[in-house]
Design a protein around this nucleic acid. Structure first.
Lengths: 207, 207, 207, 207
DNA sequence: GATGAATGAGTATTCATTCAT
DNA sequence: AATGAATGAATACTCATTCAT
């Protein structure tokens, strides 16, 4: 079983550790069987604990999914901000952010499944990755990097591209990462030439 | 209640008409409550018939959803092909196709909900709109309209943009239609200038 | 198993008959194990039908209990009114009514259990036997048979006596019937002498 | 929160005090929500302690209820015996006893709820107030105060009247106290005149 | 073909009680 | 003694599907 959240809670009290195990288990089972096919019993059985224990930590299945999506988003986003510190160019920042997030998702395979699944299962507000993306782009707009200031609709379209990429990532083709960034920038209205250049510059930050 | 499929079967035998009522009802209820929250009882009650009647027309719930998605796709796609007949330019064909489909979806509001919902709920094979899109693009590639021949991944990304647009259409803003086409073409690698031109030309076909 | 409500619905549609079986079964099981110890499964198993069938007829356990108490009360009260027709004297009417109801309860042993049990389990409004009693007494008041006009409190006290008697009836001692009537009249303020006389007169109506 | 049992244990060791808090809390919560709707968690949460603490003081929920009913009965009965010392006349003793108990219940509102509720919830043996009542009456019989020696059935009927009065007491009408005594004596076969006289004499003992 | 009724196999949830610290 | 956490055993209720008419 995955031990990601479990290890995050190493040293904390038992409650936190059990919660971690539950999150890890849900992650694995969701990735294996799909979110909506998963019963609570599957998760607790996989976690090796009693059915009822679940309810000490989450109100119901929905709360678990939300918590999981939030936790993953947090883990994905956390390392991004510091890495972006020195980068001036907005499009390059998007390239790098996308790269970091996707590589993180690659290492924890099931993350992309859950995030991708939750994206269309949960109300949008829960998806912090999407929000973060919007934030990144918004900053780019202020800097004038994108010709037309993207409104909500445009941001939705970019996010759709990103999530679609994240889903495909499951299959393990690394090239997808750069191509997703490319498409995001294209939707944002950059000319193909400038897009290439941004991708190029991005590479400098993660050789 | 919607009367679309019902009227399609006007004059046919009773069996066909009942089936039509069921499809219409499912459409309405799905649009209202979401596909996975809908129980068969909701549909038959809405249709004003006994729940067992359902099984005279569909093997099970899955078959209904499939049939519905297929039927909608058929209705959406049918008018497209003939309208595209005289159009030589592949990007323009995409623009026009997108426009026709989205306007059709606009007129039958619930269609977009069901299509959008089904897209992430059902196995991809059921979604014929997506397939059709891919077909259209593939033709464009043969004609050399798109610089890089789009592979499956790229087609997925375009489809993601399309479906995301279709979902937003719910909210009733017509501008979304053209902007979705714009983004699709952008993802396909066209320069912003050429995209504008294709949109322009497309307008000629639906004043 | 009891066949009371079942036979009441003889000739009616299947729905009514099944409902009858459920009522009969509930009656038996309640009487056997007590209302609050009884699970729905006990009832349906006893009735020889599927658990889920219950929900085709009653929303939940509460609705069943209410329905049962109502049905019993109805059966108990029904024969009373006609028998009281010719009786002028209010106290005698109470004696006779009490006698009829209690004998009915004696014949269907479990009735008294359920009524007695429900009395303190359900909100008072459901107990129609109690209401009927109050009605009877109220009429007596109009006729001036009881010195002090009984208010709600006094009626509650009389009802308490009646229900307490009904509960004891379970044990099968017939004498209890007359003694309960006696105590009811006593609480209503009749002198012991007059009470005896009313009991005497009552006997004329059921030799 | 009530502080009755808590204060009873003032000065005693911590164990006793905690037990007192639990009794007080149970009393309040029972009175608020009814005994059978109350979960142990409700009580311990109200008491501000961990639920497991409960089991340091009571074997299980039943033991708590029993203990509570016993404790209340004890508190109610204790003051009665000494006050009855000088009273010779049995009916007057009943009047006075009823008065003392009901006034005590009035001051600790929730008592009547719990006692009344427990009466029909618990096996009869737990209800010591009822037993005490019977004892009182039995003594009266020995003295020849009641024409016909009341057997168990008759005592049940008297108790029913008493408990019914106790329940109504909740609503705060003090007159109920004397009227309940009146009805108890009536059921015991005293003539209305003698009942009045006994009530009168009783008043002398609690002006 | 249509229907009302019945049903089996789930499945989430509750709660008293025990366990480890 | 007190506690936070874990748990087993129950139990009500849902829903797609089948059956008999």
């Amino acid at each position: 079983m995955s031990r990601y959240f479990q290890e995050r809670s190493r040293g904390l009290n038992k409650r936190a550790r059990t919660r971690g195990i539950l999150l890890d288990s849900a992650l694995d089972v969701f990735a294996e069987s799909g979110i909506s096919n998963t019963r609570l019993d599957d998760i607790t059985k996989y976690a090796g604990m009693a059915n009822a224990t679940f309810y000490n930590h989450f109100k119901d299945k929905d709360e678990l999914i939300t918590a999981l999506a939030k936790a993953i988003a947090l883990e994905l986003i956390a390392p991004v901000d510091e890495r972006l510190a020195g980068i001036k160019d907005a499009p390059v920042r998007i390239v790098v952010a996308n790269n970091i997030i996707m590589h993180a998702a690659l290492e924890q395979k099931s993350w992309s499944t859950v995030l991708g699944g939750a994206f269309y299962l949960l109300p949008p507000r829960y998806i912090d990755v999407g929000s973060y993306l919007k934030l990144l782009i918004a900053r780019g707009v202020e800097e004038g990097s994108f010709t037309d200031a993207p409104d909500n609709f445009q941001l939705d379209q970019v996010t759709a591209v990103f999530i679609s990429g994240l889903r495909t990532l499951d299959k393990g083709d690394v090239n997808i990462i750069d191509r997703t960034a490319q498409n995001m920038l294209r939707v944002l209205g950059m000319s193909p030439a400038k897009v290439s250049s941004a991708l190029e510059k991005g590479h400098a930050f993660y050789s």
